[in-house]
Design a protein around this nucleic acid. Structure first.
Lengths: 253, 253
DNA sequence: CGAGCAATTGAACGCTGTCAACCCGAGTGG
DNA sequence: CCACTCGGGTTGACAGCGTTCAATTGCTCG
């Protein structure tokens, strides 16, 4: 459950990944961080951190997708956040993880020993401040998702999900044009668990969107957005304000 | 929308409220905090902070209940957190509030000017650390609630809600005996919005619990828990581990 | 080529939302 | 003091969305 391929690695390599937490830090802090960094890889389906278990490290995603999930005793479970490259994972100052973290695809992670990382936080308030902002954003995303789960229909949720991914994929690009092809980085099963529904309902909604010519299904993992405006409407959001809402920016939480 | 009864007040009074953030701070910090404190009161239904609007203050609840909610354009809305006395509200380091904060009952708040509060955070890493822990707990609660909203039936949600309130009410008491009477501090409408359902469904679930002799309905706002063990089972949680989960401790998020 | 998994499609059931009526207590005013 | 109104809560009937169960297809891998 704990130690697949773990590769110790020097500062240089990991710094090449632009993680939200690390970028723009003072060189001094960056250096100390890099010293703690270790690369780990997991295969799809492997557990990185089990629910309610003590965690030895925190870090961020280099490549692949992590899912944070919670489960009831009877097996029902819900994905409470997807972590894409540059997103960070793990909880500081907690004895045990509140969620399980699993590899939704093959992943490469950049990890920091938790105790060491916490020591850095204590030493550099600048870094702890970053952490505060990061968790705040995660909280925002979680609350957005609560609204979605509690009030929206499955089709609305699917539309929202596609829009988020569309926004993600052109993140480096100029602005929310939203046209083009969206890549679904995870399986239907995970999509269902994230959207609080079943694979069957997901399938029906996707086919429905296709039938209405809002999207074109290239293959299971790739959809072309034919009518962005309509997609936004179907998501239950206001086209005008959609660009600004945090939904258009992140998946975590 | 902004300025109902605002009462400037000295340090002494507010310190008497044991807010989770303030307690056990070093005297020096405490004193500076107290200097910023202002008491505000709102009547039930009034808006403390509108969604997506800049906020001038943060603070904590002295008495009454606040609701944090989000809404879709078409009016559908969801309560993403209830704030009881000693819970803190407001977001630091954000231009605008991500949620609307309204008075679910008549409330008394202890408020701090946001800019001043943030200055304190920058000055005392100890305080910012507290803040980090506080937001982390809120995130945990939000993720717990996502699981509940996405996977549980209405009856399970109601049972969970009652258990949380039961745990709250005997917080100063020794341990989770859970017997006795639970007071619902909010109206059915808010309960429905918090549990992601309707007042009708809430009503049916409550009557169902009564019919099964799990609770006794004293009046609309007071239920006596007759069979705590059964209530925990109906909530979808494991009786053994329920005591430890964060669900048994907080409402926020 | 067969096994196994992911995705889709179809049919039927059930939970829960919707709509409507009703009850009840509080506040109001004649 | 009592009739009236109004809002909150309960109850009933009904329909619909989405889950469940089941069958089919298509792809990957051994």
């Amino acid at each position: 459950m704990e130690a697949p391929a773990v590769v110790a690695i020097g500062p240089a390599r990991c710094a090449s990944i632009r993680c939200s937490l690390c970028s723009d830090l003072s060189p001094c802090v960056k250096e100390e961080l890099a010293r703690l960094a270790r690369i780990r890889t997991y295969k799809a389906g492997e557990t990185v951190v089990a629910e309610a278990e003590p965690v030895g490290f925190v870090g961020h995603v280099v490549s692949g997708v992590l899912r944070m999930q919670k489960a009831l005793q009877d097996g029902r479970q819900q994905i409470v956040g997807l972590l894409l490259p540059s997103d960070s994972f793990g909880r500081v100052f907690a004895e045990a993880s509140h969620v399980a973290i699993e590899a939704a695809t093959d992943v490469t992670l950049c990890c920091y020993n938790r105790a060491g990382f916490e020591a850095l936080l204590a030493k550099f308030p600048e870094l702890e401040h970053r952490m505060l902002l990061s968790i705040s954003r995660e909280l925002d995303a979680a609350q957005d998702w609560m609204l979605l789960l509690a009030t929206q229909t499955v089709t609305e949720r699917v539309a929202t999900f596609l829009l988020i991914l569309a926004g993600k994929s052109l993140e480096p690009a100029p602005r929310p044009v939203l046209a083009g092809t969206v890549t679904i980085p995870i399986a239907r099963k995970d999509m269902a668990a994230y959207l609080g529904t079943t694979v069957e309902s997901i399938s029906r909604s996707v086919q429905e969107l296709s039938r209405r010519s809002v999207i074109r299904i290239v293959d299971t993992q790739h959809f072309e957005i034919l009518n962005p405006r309509r997609l936004i409407e179907l998501s239950g959001h206001d086209p005008a304000e959609f660009a600004q809402t945090s939904l258009s920016r992140r998946l975590a939480g």
